[in-house]
Amino acid sequence: MSLAKRIEKALIDAARILPEPIHKRIEWARGEEERLDGKSAGSKASIAVLDAIVENLRVSGNEWIPMCQDTGMFDVFVDVGRSCPLSHAEIEEAILKGCEEGAKNGYFRPSVVEEPLFGRKNTKTNMPPIIWWNLVEGRNVEISILLKGFGSENTSATRMMNPTATEEQIVAAVAEVVTIAGGKPCPPIFLGIGLGGTMERAAYLSKRALLREVGVPHGEERYAKLEEKILAGVQATGVGSGGLGGRITALNVAIEHEPTHIAGLPMGVSINCWADRIAHILWEG
């Protein structure tokens, strides 16, 4: 199968089926909601939301309907091996073709406009995708495509923290973003946090953090612990599933970090809805 065809197929599947670790996390959220409360009006409403999500996933998988009408904007992350035999131009061509065919044959909603302010004319093809290139060791190409819904994207944020910020201040700043978001991003949410770099690099890192497999903690213990602290801080907001009040607001937190300037601590907070749809394609060179 050509790379373009593999991308197309992965996108069509991603709009309809979530990976097993996410199903497990949704089940976990329902159990926790019952265990920690389950009686208040907000908690009961949260459980109703989680039950609707499970039923929705059953319908989308069985009847091949996209799980959400917002099939998102294609946010493409490409890791190209330095010794990869494919040229960037060949990879780009495959991505463009795969995205266009995936949107068409997957019955995706045309959700992209060609210009943001004047007229907002729909491109009708979901093109163009956003493509981020990254060089890595080896011969392979690894492509991850977020089907990025904008209910959640609109609530994502960057914060330029002080270089002296404490862990507690980081947790509080993320909890504030989640509280402002409330029910808008379709909680329970997935959180990607980018720390370091510059303003736009932190935002980019926060998206890359979303790409990590759900349930796999950060490789460094201190960051893995911070992920847990942020998750606890976000659950304490009481936003709940559907924003209706409840004990579980987030399903997962992942952090990526990079070097930064002595005067700053840029932070990106990317919020993704429970429908955490990512197409992964590994091309082996």
Binding site: N56, V59, C68, Q69, G151, G183, G242, L244
Partner: peptide, 30 residues
């Protein structure tokens, strides 16, 4: 729809005797 409303909408709902109902977000297949 889904998610919170502004104070102006909350006031108008009360004044005009109307309701705001939340559908299940992301559950388009359902």
């Amino acid at each position: 729809g889904k998610g919170p409303r502004s104070q102006a909408v909350q006031d108008a709902l009360k004044k005009e005797k109307a309701v705001y109902v939340q559908a299940f977000g992301g559950c388009g297949a359902l």
